[in-house]
Design a protein around this nucleic acid. Structure first.
Lengths: 128, 128
DNA sequence: TGGATATATTCACCTGAGCGAATATGTTGC
DNA sequence: GCAACATATTCGCTCAGGTGAATATATCCA
């Protein structure tokens, strides 16, 4: 419980959770969008994984992370409301927008066969 | 937001919030029930006050603390559900029980004119 | 097999925060 | 004013945890 809230008590981790929302996201997009050094993101993802808040899935070279709802119903509701809260934040909205436009502003990974997040394959090139 | 979750990410502070629940509680009961040194409790109360989660009211020598619901509705719901979550925890239940029985197990302060928490004046001597 | 790429881990450093001990502040009653 | 009491703050210590730099691991492809 203490650990659960500590996991939410860091801005980088909140940004990661915000980007995942309901969908699975490849690490390369986290690196691209958050902009920081890759080991930093990897460490925070490990922290969240260790806290049981996200799970990882390997697909070739790429790793996908997604939120796993805690088995405890109260914790799950808190996590859901935290995600809703994040959606209201301007900076978090900007992060999400950048994820959605990932295919149209082809950065380092976009042209290289990196797996697109679901939101991109659905909505891209309409939003752009 | 980061600060909000950091405030919840400590077991002593969660115990304090659990004891406050919906009612106002005198510091002397926190000291009595948590058992630790008084400055420790005072520091954690200051932390919570600084984070805007509790407010203090002076009554003579005594200080009363109570939870203030955050103005943001999402944050308020998270706090409420956190309190509900705490109620399910065995150790937290034991803390609450000790607060309720405070008048019947007269410890250091109980005979000395210390203000009783609302739960005590309502339910005490029925529960004992 | 070897090189390129994506991700993870380790290391050294530094800051924030929890802690016990000591001390300060504020209130009451004599 | 002074003593007693409730609470708050400060100090020095220690440690968890965040960070950048370097390195390790894992996968793909030629």
């Amino acid at each position: 419980m203490q650990q659960f809230f500590q996991a939410l008590g860091d801005n980088t981790r909140l940004r990661l959770l915000n980007l995942m929302g309901e969908q699975e996201v490849c690490v390369c997009y986290f690196v691209e969008i958050l902009g920081g050094p890759q080991p930093k993101i990897s460490r925070h993802l490990a922290y969240l994984r260790n806290a049981g808040i996200v799970s990882a899935r390997r697909e070739g070279k790429w790793m996908h992370y997604r939120i796993v709802m805690p088995p405890h119903i109260g914790a799950a509701q808190i996590l859901r409301q935290t995600l809703d809260w994040l959606k209201e934040d301007r900076a978090m909205q900007a992060d999400r927008a950048r994820l959605t436009r990932a295919c149209c502003s082809p950065a380092k990974y976009a042209l290289d066969g990196a797996p697109l997040p679901a939101a991109v394959t659905e909505s891209c090139c309409e939003a752009c």
